[in-house]
Structure formats: C-alpha cells, structure tokens
C-alpha cells in the first residue's frame, strides 16, 4: 500500500507531526526507531514544557504525545528504519527486508549523544560507560564516576549522579564551562563534584565482565597522562544528528544537520520534510521540536493538496 505519509522518528517532532497528519486524515505511519519517545525518555523531570506547571516526567510526557497521536489514527510501530531510497516518488523506506512506500516522508530522527570515538568506549558501553545518567546512575551507588563534557547536559548529569555516587569528577578540555551560569553554579556548589580542567579522556580501562576500574586522563597544558581510578564514565559532550540514512539523498551541513528551507521544513527533495533536532542545532528543545513537527505536518498536507489538486 502506498501511504500518504511516513514519519521516521517518535520524539516530540515526530509525534506532533503524527498528531497533525492524523487529524488531517492522512493516516500516518510512524516508525519509532530504537528509542521510542526520543531523548526525553532518558530524562527525569521536564520543567520547561509549557502546560505542565508542576513539571512532568520525560517518559510520561512522551506516552501522552503517543496517546494523543494514536487517538486520531496514527499508527506507531516500534521498528527501526534500515534503508531509504528517495531517488523518485513514491519514496521507499525499508525495515530490514520489509519495504514501505509513501508520497511524503517526514524525517524526525533527532540526535544522539556524541561519543569520543575511543575503542574502549564502545566496548564498555553499558558496562560502566554510559550516555545516560538517569538510566544508569542507580548502578553507581557510593562509587566514583567521571562525567566528560562542559555544557548544560554535563552539569545536569553530574548533579544527578551525586544522588548516588560518592564522588563525581567532571573532565573538561577547557578552563571554563560553556554551560549556563545557573547550571555551573549548581554544579560547582555541590560538595561531591570536582573538576579536572584542561583535561581530556585518553582511555577507559576495564572489561565487560568486571566493568570500568580507571581512566587515563591527559592534561592538555603539559601533555602529561595520569591514571584515575573510577567505576563509571558518563559521556556528555554534545549530540550528533541521526542522519546516516539520509546523507546521500539530502543536503546537510558539515555536522550532518539536514538543511531546511527558511521558514519551512522542506528539504531539497519535494515531498521530504525534516523537523526537530535532526535539522536544528540551535534551539534543541522539546517545545521547538514539537513546533517544527507541526510545521512539517502542515507542509506535507499542503504538498499533497497541490499534488492531487
């Protein structure tokens, strides 16, 4: 069956696009990907989503987004798109060997935590290395952990981890944080948090069986390396857009963020739209993602109207 709309991604952008296209009777099919609900599902309290004055838990908010979209007929599948072909309409999307086609595609695949690229980092991911303090902090009760990064998410992770860990060492390559002042103040005032300035993580030592036992830290001022004992390493060095599937077909900037036309969600291909963090490296908020998801739905609806007259 050739669909009117396929939406790839299920964070605030994808599910808002699903809500709007469902209400426009376009019967959207949503591929939720490997992290249904997106990045908010690995946070705790969301305090800045309007309409929830007391705050709301990230996973709960995303359940509400999904419920609202499915109420109007959006079909959400916990499936991960593995290949696309946008060379001509109808556009093709594969989930392993199953092929789906649609007249329009809305890309809302968001962004993922960036990794340093160390071999030990990927080997020990889930075995002491983590990109999600709220998921894994619990396993580091009374242990010493390292947080790598200097932005708001690094501060947030470090502060959150003090609920469990005995000591949190923030490793940052510069001599000041780029995080907002309020977050830096909260972090530096916390007695459990220490900072290694001008320092980079050179290696992580441990095994999958026994976990992490230490890290190698390099001082960028004098290039000296030292070993620091710790039980866990949390990466918070920023995000990369999830655009591997689309780089051939779509214009993107050097970091991989998809280009959209000013004031719209249109990409360089007619009928392919992009919304949320996958095309936004500036605002990156749930509410801006939701807003652009709504734009993508309206853009897709208009495109289909013009197509069918």
């Amino acid at each position: 069956m050739n669909r009117k709309v396929i939406i790839i991604g299920s964070g605030p952008a994808g599910l808002t696009a699903a809500l709007y296209t469902a209400r426009a009777n376009l019967n959207p099919l949503v591929f939720e990907g490997s992290q249904p609900g997106g990045q908010l599902t690995i946070t705790t309290d969301v305090e800045n989503y309007p309409g929830f004055p007391e705050g709301i838990m990230g996973p709960e908010l995303m359940d509400k987004f999904r419920d609202q979209a499915t109420r109007f007929g959006a079909e959400c599948h916990f499936k991960h798109v593995t290949k696309v072909n946008f060379s001509e309409p109808p556009y093709k999307v594969w989930v392993a060997d199953e092929c789906y086609t649609a007249e329009t595609i809305i890309i809302a695949t968001g962004a993922s935590a960036k990794m340093l690229g160390l071999e030990s980092e990927s080997e020990l991911m889930g075995y002491g290395v983590s990109a999600c303090a709220t998921c894994d902090g619990y396993f580091f009760k009374d242990k010493k952990v390292i947080v790598v990064g200097g932005g708001d998410s690094a501060m947030e992770e470090a502060i959150y981890l003090t609920k469990f860990a005995s000591e949190v060492l923030i490793v940052h390559r510069r001599d000041e944080f780029r995080a907002s002042k309020i977050m830096v103040k909260r972090a530096l005032n916390n007695l459990k948090i220490k900072v290694a300035w001008n320092t980079v993580l050179a290696d992580i030592l441990g095994t999958q069986k026994k976990g992490v036992h230490s890290v190698m830290l390099k001082d960028t001022q004098n290039d000296k390396t030292r070993e620091e004992a710790c039980d866990g390493v949390f990466m918070a060095i920023g995000h990369i857009p999830n655009t591997d599937l689309f780089v051939e077909a779509l214009d993107a900037d050097q970091a991989g963020y998809i280009f959209t036309k000013n004031g719209s969600t249109a990409t360089n291909l007619d009928g392919v739209f992009a919304c949320g963090d996958v095309q936004d490296n500036v605002y990156r908020q749930a509410v801006t993602a939701a807003g652009s998801g709504c734009m993508a739905a309206i853009d897709a609806e208009k495109y289909l109207e013009n197509l069918h007259g």
Binding site: E32, G37, I42, T43, G58, D63, F78, C135
Partner: peptide, 14 residues
Amino acid sequence: WAEWCGPCRAIGPV
C-alpha cells in the same frame, strides 16, 4: 528493568 527507566518501558511490550 526498573519503573524509572524510559528505555525499559519502550522495550517492555517487545
């Protein structure tokens, strides 16, 4: 799994 783990809730139905 745990109640407070978002990805756990995602994989529960699977």
